[in-house]
Amino acid sequence: MIQAQNSDASLSEVTTWFKAAEVSAFPENGGACVKYQDQQIAVFYFARRNEWYACQNMCPHKQQMILARGMVGDQCGEPKVACPYHKKTFSLITGENLNGECYEIQTYPVKVENGFVYIGIKE
């Protein structure tokens, strides 16, 4: 299965598919943090939709490495994550803040192949 919903980072721009971890390592309908070089990437598995998303782990509001521990959900169908600190929510498609504030997050394409989760990186 290959899947990538991200509009910011289109598949064609991906230079590296980073093999993050086995599918079974990730919680359902929640997130986990993946270390890629010096970066921290939050990966979310929407089991109900069978969709995967990824974004930076740092919440831009107070610069905390935390988004992977946030609750996932949707706002009018748009997949989102809520930061555990102050419940700032971000679209996992566009990275846009959904509370009407100006900061946004980087999102990444995700694909699943042979039981492994890959994150698309643009070097």
């Binding site: 109900r48 959900g73 949707d74 809520a82 419940k87 929510t89």
Partner: peptide
């Protein structure tokens, strides 16, 4: 939660209804 969402809710839930 999933049972409840399937039978009485819609969408994927959120940080309000989950906790």
């Amino acid at each position: 939660y999933d049972e409840l969402l399937d039978q009485y809710g819609k969408g994927d839930g959120c940080e309000v209804c989950k906790p």
